[in-house]
Design a protein around this nucleic acid. Sequence first.
DNA 1: TCAAAAACTTCACGCCGTATAGTTTTCGCA
DNA 2: TGCGAAAACTATACGGCGTGAAGTTTTTGA
Lengths: 237, 237
Amino acid sequence: MAGTRGTGRRERLRAETTAEIKGTALELMGSGGPDAITLRAIAREMGMTANAIYGYFATRDDLVTALIADVYTALADAVEAAWSAAPADDPAAGIRAWAHAFRGWALANSEGFRLIYGDPVPGYRAPEGGAAPDAAQRVCVGIAGLAAAAWPQAGSPGADDDFTWADFDPGLLGKVRPAFPGLPPAGVALALRIWGRLHGLVSLEVYGHLRAQTTSPDRLFGAELAQLVRSLGLAAG
Amino acid sequence: MAGTRGTGRRERLRAETTAEIKGTALELMGSGGPDAITLRAIAREMGMTANAIYGYFATRDDLVTALIADVYTALADAVEAAWSAAPADDPAAGIRAWAHAFRGWALANSEGFRLIYGDPVPGYRAPEGGAAPDAAQRVCVGIAGLAAAAWPQAGSPGADDDFTWADFDPGLLGKVRPAFPGLPPAGVALALRIWGRLHGLVSLEVYGHLRAQTTSPDRLFGAELAQLVRSLGLAAG
DNA sequence: TCAAAAACTTCACGCCGTATAGTTTTCGCA
DNA sequence: TGCGAAAACTATACGGCGTGAAGTTTTTGA
């Protein structure tokens, strides 16, 4: 049957155009904010008609969904790379590396951060199934890894003791439990709490709310991080 | 001179119409999300022409800015009321009351929360001067009050020791320092960190990212709160 | 009572997403 | 090599958006 082999010229061109559409969209987002992602602007930039894009994405929201997945993947790559570069036997250093990579990426790609964690684009509604992109879980699994590395020392905060596996998304657990067999439900709760804690200051900063109150958001983040590491029972590292 | 007295019929009608415009906008936001705030829809709802609104707000963004101020004020009222209702001699209870009021308001008014803390509405850019609404500072001052109440016990975390007054916005300090004379710069830093910590989980939840990972976001928030109170050196209360 | 000012409408422009229909290009197979 | 189908793309159109310019109605104070 035609088209079954994945290497036909047509398929290749199609993939290239798809990539160009997404790339142009990301460029526009970088230069004009998420609101600049319009089918017409993308088409204009590419020398096409806006309707031509409908051959690649059924709807503008589908395009945005694809962009979110791509950007989220970039974020996951960035934090995972930073974590891998940290000394494996030092949980505190791993957390610091992860957190600084997270904040650094968010500030350097603030449009992308808004795309992922905010209201992405005028009128966009996430697809119904709610299937968060894989990269979202990669990020969560990464934080679970931080929690797992610190767990021997962090196991006693006690606040998370009454969590059970039923409290968490099966899909998340499907990745977390095999990867970190020693981590109890309380450890997953701890991971999500760490996520929230890091997300809070970073999102306030990305959206400009923090800069209205302090001139040293980096110092503030560092202090929060130090307090986090200490609360996990990890030494100064 | 005409119009100097503030009670003329004309002024009153004008104020009423202004309020009706904002009220209609908030209704639309509640029923159709922030994207439903369009001049044309508001006008339609009020039986006017869209351009008539230009007599009250120079631009759509001006209207949104006014809405943000109003909604932010509602949030500030809510958390201040909850804090006032808590026993004055129990810092931990005050923090819990404040935090639960914050999360409760955010979940009950998620559109408003997005309006305040996210990208409010298609294409909206905050006004240049960056003058955050007064209510924003009211919220921050409120958290500073939480930190101040806990300060005798919380004073020793140490992570915030190298902050100085120069690290913070003068406007914020202008309200915080008179209100809480005993609070050092480290205490203000602590307040902003608490803000970020609470904001993180709540905003993940409001934007739906938390529900993709856990079925018990309320439990998670409670655990985070417990850990926060403990890290401040406050007893179980 | 009357002119000025305020409130409001009408019309227009250029954006946007997208549906429908028509046109051109490309491909696989006989 | 040529042909029919499929894919890629364009043209046109609709309704909705913010907003500017110009005109009309209502209200006001002297």
